[in-house]
Nucleic acid binder design. Structure first.
Lengths: 114, 114
DNA sequence: GCCTTATATAAGGCAAGTCTTCTATAAGGC
DNA sequence: GCCTTATAGAAGACTTGCCTTATATAAGGC
C-alpha cells in the first residue's frame, strides 16, 4: 500500500474526522474507534485500518501505554498540504494577509538557511 | 456523482495538476488536456472528465470562446480546505505566524459582520 | 455543405481501496 | 493460569471511481 500524496490520505472522511478528534491531544485507539463507529457506523477493525493509514503516512504517531495505544497528530504531512495550498492563497488573500504570509514565509526561509 | 467534500476532489493527482496549470490564468480545455495527456499518459476524455469534476464541484469556472472552453480557478472550495487546515496550523505555526493568521482572520470576521 | 478541430458524454472494464468477519497478540485483573 | 479487554492483522466481498473506446455536438475554414 503506497500512498504518494497527503491529499490521498485526507480524501477519506473517516480519517479527517480522526485527525479532528486528535486536535484535543492524545487519544487511545479505543476512544477514537468508539466515536468513529458511532458516527460512521463501521466496525472496530475498519477504524483500526484508518489509524494504520494515518500512522503509515506520517499523519499520526503512536505510543504504547500498557495495552492501550495513544495516538497523536503528527503535523508534517499537513504542512505539505498547506504548502500546496499556499500557491492558491493569492486568489482570496487580501494584501495584508499576503504580507503576513510573506512575513512568516520569509522568516521560515531564514531559519532554514541558518 | 455526488462529492461531499473538497478533499475528495483534491485526492486525485490529475485534478491537483490541472489546478496548478490554472495558476497562470485561464487555459483552454485543449491546452490543459495536452499537458495532462503528456504527463499522465491518459486520454483526452479522461482529462475532460477530470475537468468536469472540477467544474461540478466549484473548483473551476468555464467560459466559451467559439468552440474553445476556457477554464479558470474558482478558489471557493480551496478556501474551505484552507479553513479545515487552519485548525491544525497551531501544530507548526510559530507565535508570529499565529499572530499574522489571527490578524487576517480577525479582519475577515469584521468584514463579514459589516 | 463538408471536413476538421475542439470538446464533452456514455457505456463498460478494471483496479484500488474500504468494509466485514475471523483471528491473533498482548496486557490487566483476580 | 485464565478470562477479559484493547488492539491489530488477514482474507475475501463489495463498491467506487478512473480509464478506454466509441460517439455526439458545435464551431471554423474553405
Amino acid at each position: 500500500m503506497v500512498i504518494v500524496h497527503a491529499f490521498d490520505v485526507l480524501g477519506d472522511p473517516v480519517r479527517r474526522r480522526i485527525l479532528e478528534l486528535l486536535l484535543d491531544g492524545e487519544q487511545t485507539s479505543g476512544a477514537i474507534s468508539a466515536v468513529i463507529q458511532e458516527e460512521f457506523g463501521i466496525s472496530q477493525p475498519a477504524a483500526s485500518q484508518h489509524l494504520r493509514v494515518l500512522r503509515e503516512n506520517g499523519f499520526a504517531t503512536v505510543r504504547a501505554e500498557g495495552a492501550r495505544r495513544l495516538y497523536a497528530v503528527d503535523p508534517a504531512p499537513l504542512r505539505e498540504v498547506d504548502a500546496w495550498l499556499a500557491h492558491f492563497r493569492r486568489f482570496w488573500a487580501q494584501p495584508l494577509d499576503a504580507l503576513a504570509t510573506e512575513l512568516a514565509r520569509g522568516r521560515r526561509e531564514r531559519r532554514k538557511d541558518s
